[in-house]
Design a protein around this nucleic acid. Structure first.
Lengths: 152, 152
DNA sequence: TTTAGTGCAAACTATTTGCACATCA
DNA sequence: TGATGTGCAAATAGTTTGCACTAAA
């Protein structure tokens, strides 16, 4: 749906920086856009992209993710499962998702997203008090999910 | 100062579980207690403990950290620098530190702790709404620190 | 004495890097 | 064309695991 918008912005941002527009870069971003809300690791992305473009290399996926992250087109999440995960940037998510947090179950390991942008007040408070300019945040809650609670 | 309290609790908790009280376990926890607020990685702890107890192995440090974490005696923090870090559990920190968050500068990489326990309301809200039982949280803010902002 | 715990070295996994080749501007 | 980007394989870094030995109960 927003695929075109995503691609267009990437092309513009790459040109702006004097970087080349390649199939690989377009594919990495559009694959992330398609699987919105999925927290994909580099290997998973690699596997998925290979279906369309078998000659892509894993190293390219890593390099591209780093680039897209620096360009603020994608978000990075660390769910403590041993790999860094990415999702399409909150810039693209429009109205529906401002920012979401993660509930991580310590028993079963499942990750539940929780929507809600209740940190804005806190952010301005911190900026005023410390002079630190905040551009993003990551909030994780650890505990025991409903099902695991009931299983005891 | 609180060294004795820390050691006493560890002994009690180990006995409770039928686990053995070893020099290594006592050392890992007390070293973390001494360097409170330091976010130590396994390798750093290992280096520091070796000064007192040179025969300790790195694998033991890793295994012990995992055990102490499961016992809720230490907290785990991930500052995106490629290694997991630990600090003495918030249980021990008494009045002064309830919970603190981290401001991570994307330019210089420095980490600034920020005290404040402003998440309690949010936690009860989530528990009521989702049934997820929260025991801990990790909140990180990304942005640009005061010094780096001024350097532009 | 007996089982849990340790130290060492090897294995593993996610990620990064060097380099020759390919590709976009 | 000429630099930037890519794919591959090798290197790296953090962490885990197998196993014989040690030490706590």
């Amino acid at each position: 749906m927003e695929q075109e918008k995503v691609e267009k912005l990437l092309r513009a941002k790459l040109k702006e920086r004097g970087l080349k527009i390649t199939q690989q870069r377009l594919l990495v971003l559009s694959t992330l856009a398609k699987s919105s809300g999925n927290h994909m690791a580099a290997e998973e992305l690699y596997a998925q992209i290979q279906q369309q473009y078998p000659e892509i290399g894993l190293a390219t996926v890593y390099r591209t993710l780093q680039l897209l992250y620096e360009m603020q087109l994608i978000d990075r999440i660390n769910l403590d499962d041993g790999c860094v995960r990415y999702e399409i940037g909150h810039l693209f998510e429009g109205e529906m998702k401002h920012s979401h947090h993660h509930l991580i179950c310590r028993k079963c390991g499942k990750v539940f997203p929780f929507d809600g942008d209740l940190l804005d007040g806190l952010e301005t408070h911190i900026q005023e008090k410390t002079g630190f300019h905040i551009v993003d945040h990551e909030l994780k809650f650890y505990g025991v999910c409903k099902q695991c609670m009931e299983q005891e």
